[in-house]
Design a protein around this nucleic acid. Structure first.
Length: 507
RNA sequence: CGGGCUGUAGCGCAGGGGUUUAGCGUACGUGUCUGGGGGACAUGGGGUCGGCGGUUCAAAUCCGCCCAGCCCGACCA
């Protein structure tokens, strides 16, 4: 059998990152483009990740007092219009429903018919329609706070789409809350931002920077927007989740009013926050390597795959029985972080090497080969996907069973630490304009190599400086919440600045 | 929405007005041998050449329009 030195994914990350990304998705069988422009089909291996995200997040939302509900897919056009900034932000990317039936024309082809009096838009986000409900639900300070989350699909008619990162239709959750006081709403906004950070770091093993968005990057209609920002392996930033303090703007637009203790009529203070299937894109781009997907165990579609190796039917029985035995042992060991371990046995009649590579490309954390030789030695041939050398280890069966949770945790931590080290290696404190320009300028302009990273530099706070820096194709990702106040000079204009912000190229 | 590149079998590609049935690699089916890192041999099946229209005796091939994908911009959660 020829030893093969080439990588499973072509091109490699350093050769062509965008194509590498698509190939990883294809090789892992996670999703594909559909016949509908900009929309994807999420296949079982990819969807399982989303289901796991949903379960983990849903628990966290419930623990912080939120309840799930569901609101309509369609939003009357007039609702969107109620909040001026909101309209400006979304009007250019709305799918609009104008008819309610189809009829056959003379040629026998189906054409839209029955024009609606008022067009409906397919929700790009639900502030306005949920606001309308809140307005009905809230009359007294006793009705507050209202803490609602919805799991839904939304549509944004994006010009340029990429699987998971930006699709015309995507899945997400959107939390919407209403509060009696400003402080309470601000606290909620930050609380959920922290929930997102915990989720990203603990479950996805993706380190993030939490911070506030600059005015130009703010959610349309928000008073302030906060984000979690992650660094991908091409050193670009990805906004992985947002939390918005909406002030009283949407409350005023929708009429969410209540009578206070002091019997005064007041507008509520609202928030909204969301994460989407874009997180799957983040997961791929943070952990995967030149051999395909690498999944952190806490979010993995499956945790362990057994590959039985045998020659005869008799051996097959023996091997499968041995595997069953190991499985039973693992199950008896209890749940992994309150989740049943998902264990597969791949007994398809495929050649060994091919089957091996398939699971490597799918990123399953532990791949275990079992053959007669292992059985004789009461051992297992285990491959940890986080091992870049792809070297398998022979481990005693009972030890494997006893330590499987620790092994999975070790993989989880390893992936997190690796991602964090990568981000730290590529985050620079830069005060000199020339250094700053050089940092963000590729050597090869025609086909830019992977370069840059996060620059922690001073910013005076003006929108003009932010605009000027777009020449370098960078934006302010966010203003870190826990940054130490520090006097300095704006990297663009040299004016006084009291804060360092995160500059980066982004998705 | 602008610029560039690309659409031929599941995937990757060749062919670039006429060569009787459109090829190659790989994947897929069957058989034998194999089997602990991407097998071997044999034998099969699979195609509206992205779509529509035009030029022509003849179009995968030339022309026009459209659609889709990717990259770069603009725009944007």
């Amino acid at each position: 059998m020829a030893k093969n030195n080439k990588t499973a994914i072509n091109p490699r990350r350093d050769e062509d990152y965008p194509i590498w990304y698509q190939e990883v998705i294809k090789a892992a069988d996670m999703a594909e483009n559909s016949d509908v422009r900009g929309c994807m089909v999420i296949k079982p291996w990819g969807y399982a990740i989303w289901e796991n995200m949903q379960r983990e997040l849903d628990d966290m939302f419930k623990e912080t007092g939120h309840k799930n509900a569901y609101f309509p897919l369609f939003i009357p056009l007039s609702y969107l219009q109620k909040e001026a900034d909101h309209v400006d932000g979304f009007a250019t990317e709305c799918a609009v429903v104008t008819h309610h039936k189809l009829t056959k024309n003379e040629e026998g082809t189906l054409v839209p018919d029955g024009e609606l009096d008022e067009p409906l838009i397919v929700r790009p986000t639900s502030e306005t329609i949920i606001g309308a409900s809140f307005a009905k639900w809230v009359n007294s300070y006793r009705d507050l706070p209202v803490l609602i989350n919805q799991w839904a699909n939304v549509v944004r008619w994006e010009r340029r789409t990429r699987l998971f990162l930006r699709t015309a239709e995507f899945l997400w959750q959107e939390g919407h809350t209403a509060h009696a006081t400003k402080q309470e709403a601000v606290d909620e906004t930050l609380k959920m931002l922290n929930v997102y950070r915990d989720f990203a770091e603990k479950i996805l093993a993706v380190p993030v920077i939490i911070g506030e968005k600059s005015e130009s990057e703010r959610f349309p209609g928000a008073v302030s927007t906060y984000s979690i920002e992650a660094m991908m392996q091409d050193k670009k930033a990805l906004q992985a989740g947002t939390s918005h303090f909406l002030g009283q703007k949407f409350a005023k637009a929708a009429g969410i009013k209540f009578q206070s203790k002091e019997t005064k009529e007041e507008y509520a203070w609202t928030t909204s926050w969301g994460v989407s299937t874009r997180l799957i894109g983040a997961l791929i781009m943070v952990h995967s390597d030149d051999n395909g997907l690498v999944l952190p165990p806490r979010i993995a579609s499956s945790h362990v795959v057994f590959l039985p190796i045998y020659k005869t039917d008799e051996e097959r029985e023996t091997v499968l029985a041995y595997i069953d035995d190991v499985k039973t042992g693992i199950k008896a060991h209890g749940r992994y972080h309150e989740r049943h371990l998902v264990i597969e046995t791949d007994d398809r009649d495929l050649r060994g090497g091919e089957k091996n590579w398939e699971w490597i490309k799918k990123g399953v954390p532990l791949k275990v080969e079992v053959g007669m030789r292992d059985i004789e030695k009461n051992s297992l041939a285990v491959l940890r996907r986080d091992n870049p050398e792809l070297k398998k280890e022979f481990i005693n069966k009972d030890e494997f069973i006893a330590s499987i949770h620790e092994t999975l945790d070790d993989i989880q931590n390893n992936l997190f630490e690796r991602a964090k080290a990568f981000r730290e290696d590529n985050t620079k404190i830069i005060d000199d304009t020339k250094d700053f320009d050089a940092f963000f300028t590729p050597e090869n302009k025609e086909k830019p190599e992977i370069h840059g990273g996060f620059a922690m530099s001073h910013w005076c706070g003006s929108a003009k400086c932010e605009e000027d820096l777009k020449e370098l194709k960078i934006t302010i990702r966010n203003i870190p919440l826990h940054g130490k106040p520090e006097e300095g000079k704006c990297i663009n204009c040299g004016e006084d600045s009291s804060m360092r912000v995160v500059f980066a190229k982004s998705y």
